[in-house]
Amino acid sequence: MEVRTIKVFTTVDNINLHTQVVDMSMTYGQQFGPTYLDGADVTKIKPHNSHEGKTFYVLPNDDTLRVEAFEYYHTTDPSFLGRYMSALNHTKKWKYPQVNGLTSIKWADNNCYLATALLTLQQIELKFNPPALQDAYYRARAGEAANFCALILAYCNKTVGELGDVRETMSYLFQHANLDSCKRVLNVVCKTCGQQQTTLKGVEAVMYMGTLSYEQFKKGVQIPCTCGKQATKYLVQQESPFVMMSAPPAQYELKHGTFTCASEYTGNYQCGHYKHITSKETLYCIDGALLTKSSEYKGPITDVFYKENSYTTTIK
């Protein structure tokens, strides 16, 4: 009895394709271990004539594949690729409408935090270190965002349907971005203890939790000093293409032309909904596939993004 075979390709990165001759009487799992086709788990399936010449994702289970996976995804987590594939199996079914010149995501599976993050990423200057993220990001900007969303979920250790947080998501993504040249110098002034300067680099240099107003941050924000008295913390120097200011959701007025974009969060910790506000020729609110415009805006804002380049204080 002759062994019926077909020729397929296996890959971990969709760049390096490895030619395989597979036995049609055995499952993919018996031949390769966990195997995925377009995100779908085909591990328990036997090869079919229609699979001839198709590319299958496999887990990096030998040295060659491990090197290829690390170079593309910059992670050695053995569960990463499987999590990416199972997320992709959902995100490829989502709709990605162009809204006001940006790629958004039609609401499904509690994905409003991903839509808000995706919209924000198209408006701030950011370059990702893992080629996987950078490639998928370019495709997302062009309207094909399924891979990018699935990668975000995998890097953030999230599953489809789980509630997510924009600030946490951005923080994970910033860790995989090139923020080497970003720098922030802060000064804390206390009447009792004097003053202390701190220099922050990388992710810490672009994120701040405690106030939404970048102007206020430049002037000074009140913080408790270690001595128990009130101290003032203010920005001395900022070198970065953008800054992200966050605070627990509270009524906040966004003035046209003073910011790049913002995240609105309605609801409580267990259950809520994100919308995205962007400042173009007027203010726009993007909620999944829905767009509304207004000249002014007041609502429960939790993150505001500002364009920056270089700032030095005039406070002496």
Results as ranks from 00 to 15, higher is better:
Glu2Met: 08
Val3Asp: 14
Val3Gln: 12
Val3Glu: 14
Thr5Gly: 11
Ile6Phe: 12
Lys7Leu: 11
Phe9Cys: 11
Phe9Arg: 10
Phe9Ala: 14
Thr11Tyr: 03
Val12Arg: 09
Val12Pro: 11
Asp13Ile: 09
Asp13Phe: 05
Asp13His: 02
Asp13Ala: 06
Ile15Arg: 14
Ile15Asn: 03
His18Gln: 09
Thr19Lys: 10
Gln20Pro: 07
Val21Pro: 11
Val22Ser: 08
Val22His: 01
Val22Leu: 12
Met24Ala: 15
Ser25Gln: 10
Ser25Phe: 08
Ser25Arg: 13
Ser25Leu: 10
Ser25Tyr: 11
Met26Ala: 13
Tyr28Pro: 08
Tyr28His: 04
Tyr28Leu: 08
Gly29Asp: 08
Gly29Ala: 09
Gln30Gly: 08
Gln31Leu: 13
Gln31Met: 13
Phe32His: 15
Phe32Ser: 05
Pro34Trp: 15
Tyr36Phe: 11
Tyr36Asp: 04
Tyr36Thr: 07
Leu37Trp: 14
Asp38Pro: 06
Asp38Cys: 10
Asp38Trp: 10
Gly39His: 11
Val42Trp: 14
Val42Ser: 08
Lys44Trp: 13
Ile45Pro: 07
Ile45Leu: 12
Lys46Gly: 11
Asn49Tyr: 11
Ser50Leu: 14
Ser50Cys: 12
Gly53Arg: 10
Gly53Asp: 10
Gly53Asn: 09
Lys54Pro: 05
Lys54Gly: 11
Thr55Tyr: 07
Thr55Phe: 07
Phe56Ala: 05
Phe56Trp: 03
Phe56Arg: 05
Tyr57Lys: 07
Leu59Ser: 13
Leu59His: 05
Leu59Lys: 10
Pro60Thr: 07
Pro60Ala: 09
Asn61Val: 11
Asp63Met: 06
Asp63His: 14
Leu65Pro: 04
Arg66Gly: 08
Val67Ala: 12
Val67Ile: 13
Ala69Tyr: 14
Phe70Leu: 15
Phe70Met: 15
Tyr72Phe: 10
Tyr72Ala: 13
Tyr72Gly: 06
Tyr73Gln: 06
Tyr73Ala: 03
His74Val: 00
His74Tyr: 08
His74Gly: 12
Thr76Asp: 13
Asp77His: 09
Asp77Ala: 06
Pro78Trp: 13
Pro78Asp: 10
Ser79Val: 05
Phe80Met: 05
Phe80Cys: 00
Phe80Thr: 05
Phe80Ser: 03
Leu81Ile: 14
Gly82Trp: 10
Arg83Ile: 10
Met85Glu: 13
Met85Phe: 08
Ser86Gln: 13
Ser86Phe: 05
Ala87Arg: 04
Ala87Ser: 10
Asn89Gln: 15
Asn89Cys: 14
His90Arg: 12
Thr91Gln: 01
Lys92Phe: 07
Tyr96Trp: 05
Pro97Gly: 02
Gln98His: 13
Val99Thr: 09
Gly101Pro: 05
Gly101Asn: 09
Thr103Lys: 08
Ser104Pro: 00
Ile105Leu: 03
Trp107Lys: 01
Trp107Leu: 03
Asp109Tyr: 01
Asn110Phe: 07
Asn111Ser: 02
Asn111Pro: 09
Asn111Glu: 00
Cys112Gly: 07
Tyr113Gly: 01
Leu114Pro: 05
Ala115Cys: 11
Leu118Thr: 03
Thr120Lys: 00
Thr120Trp: 04
Leu121Thr: 07
Leu121Glu: 04
Gln122Met: 03
Gln122Cys: 04
Ile124Tyr: 01
Glu125Cys: 06
Glu125Gly: 07
Leu126His: 00
Leu126Lys: 04
Lys127Phe: 08
Lys127Trp: 04
Asn129Asp: 08
Ala132Asn: 07
Leu133Val: 04
Gln134Asp: 13
Gln134Ile: 04
Gln134Ser: 09
Ala136Tyr: 08
Ala136Asn: 08
Ala136Pro: 04
Tyr137Leu: 10
Tyr138Asn: 15
Arg141Met: 12
Arg141Glu: 05
Ala142His: 14
Ala142Arg: 12
Gly143Ala: 02
Gly143Glu: 01
Ala145Trp: 05
Ala145Phe: 02
Ala146Met: 04
Asn147Ser: 09
Phe148His: 04
Phe148Asn: 01
Phe148Lys: 02
Tyr155Cys: 03
Cys156Gly: 07
Cys156Lys: 00
Asn157Trp: 05
Asn157Thr: 03
Lys158Met: 04
Thr159Asp: 04
Thr159Cys: 15
Thr159Met: 08
Gly161Lys: 03
Glu162Thr: 00
Glu162His: 03
Leu163Ser: 06
Gly164Cys: 01
Gly164Glu: 01
Gly164Asn: 09
Val166Arg: 06
Val166Trp: 00
Arg167Ala: 01
Glu168Thr: 14
Glu168Cys: 10
Thr169Asp: 07
Thr169Ile: 10
Met170Leu: 13
Met170Pro: 04
Tyr172Ala: 11
Tyr172Thr: 12
Tyr172Ser: 10
Phe174Asn: 04
Gln175Leu: 10
Gln175Asp: 07
His176Asp: 04
Ala177Thr: 10
Asn178Val: 06
Leu179Gln: 02
Leu179Val: 03
Ser181Asn: 15
Ser181Gly: 14
Cys182Phe: 08
Cys182Met: 04
Lys183Pro: 07
Lys183Tyr: 08
Arg184Ala: 09
Val185Ala: 03
Val185Phe: 01
Leu186Tyr: 13
Leu186Ile: 14
Asn187Thr: 09
Asn187Cys: 14
Val188Phe: 08
Val188Trp: 03
Val188Cys: 08
Val189His: 11
Cys190Ser: 03
Cys190Lys: 03
Thr192Ala: 13
Thr192Trp: 06
Cys193Asp: 06
Gly194Lys: 10
Gln196Pro: 02
Gln197Ile: 09
Gln197Asp: 03
Gln197Met: 09
Thr199Leu: 07
Thr199Ile: 11
Lys201Ile: 09
Lys201Cys: 05
Val203Lys: 12
Val203Asn: 04
Glu204Ile: 02
Val206Gly: 02
Met207Ala: 05
Met207Ser: 00
Tyr208Cys: 06
Met209Tyr: 15
Met209Asn: 14
Gly210Ala: 06
Leu212Val: 12
Ser213Gly: 01
Ser213Val: 01
Tyr214Pro: 00
Tyr214Thr: 00
Tyr214Lys: 01
Gln216Tyr: 01
Phe217Arg: 02
Phe217Glu: 00
Lys218Phe: 01
Lys219Pro: 03
Lys219Ala: 11
Lys219Asn: 12
Lys219Met: 09
Lys219Ile: 06
Lys219His: 05
Val221Leu: 13
Val221Cys: 07
Val221Thr: 05
Gln222Gly: 10
Ile223Tyr: 06
Ile223Gly: 12
Pro224Cys: 11
Pro224Asp: 10
Cys225Ser: 02
Cys225His: 08
Thr226Gln: 13
Gly228Thr: 06
Gly228Ser: 03
Gly228Pro: 02
Lys229Pro: 04
Gln230Val: 12
Gln230Asp: 11
Gln230Arg: 10
Gln230Leu: 15
Ala231Leu: 02
Ala231Glu: 00
Ala231Phe: 00
Thr232Val: 14
Tyr234Ser: 05
Leu235Ile: 07
Leu235Glu: 01
Val236Tyr: 07
Gln237Ser: 12
Gln237Pro: 03
Gln238Trp: 02
Gln238Arg: 01
Ser240Trp: 03
Ser240Asn: 04
Pro241Gln: 11
Phe242Cys: 03
Phe242Arg: 04
Val243Asn: 02
Met245Tyr: 09
Met245Val: 04
Ser246Ile: 00
Ser246Asp: 05
Ala247Gly: 04
Pro249Cys: 02
Ala250Val: 14
Tyr252His: 13
Tyr252Asp: 01
Glu253Cys: 01
Glu253Arg: 08
His256Tyr: 14
His256Asp: 07
His256Val: 13
Gly257Val: 06
Phe259Tyr: 00
Cys261Leu: 03
Ala262Gln: 01
Ser263Pro: 02
Glu264Gly: 12
Glu264Met: 09
Tyr265Arg: 00
Gly267Asn: 15
Gly267His: 15
Asn268Trp: 15
Asn268Ile: 15
Tyr269His: 15
Tyr269Asp: 15
Gln270Asp: 15
Cys271Leu: 13
Gly272Thr: 01
His273Thr: 03
Tyr274Glu: 00
Tyr274Trp: 04
Lys275Ile: 07
Lys275Thr: 15
His276Tyr: 03
His276Leu: 08
Ile277Gly: 00
Thr278His: 09
Thr278Lys: 01
Ser279Ala: 05
Lys280Trp: 10
Glu281His: 02
Thr282Ile: 07
Leu283Cys: 08
Tyr284His: 10
Tyr284Glu: 14
Tyr284Ser: 10
Tyr284Thr: 12
Cys285Met: 10
Ile286Asp: 00
Ile286Val: 07
Ile286Arg: 00
Asp287Arg: 01
Asp287Gln: 06
Ala289Arg: 04
Leu291Pro: 05
Lys293Asp: 07
Ser294Met: 15
Ser294Glu: 11
Ser294Leu: 15
Ser295Pro: 10
Glu296Cys: 11
Tyr297Val: 10
Tyr297His: 10
Tyr297Ala: 10
Lys298Asn: 11
Lys298Ala: 15
Lys298Glu: 14
Gly299Gln: 08
Pro300Tyr: 14
Ile301Leu: 04
Ile301Tyr: 00
Thr302Cys: 15
Thr302Arg: 03
Asp303Ser: 01
Asp303Thr: 04
Asp303Phe: 01
Phe305Thr: 08
Phe305Ala: 03
Glu308Lys: 04
Tyr311Trp: 09
Thr312Trp: 08
Thr312Arg: 15
Thr313Arg: 14
Thr313Asp: 14
Ile315Leu: 15
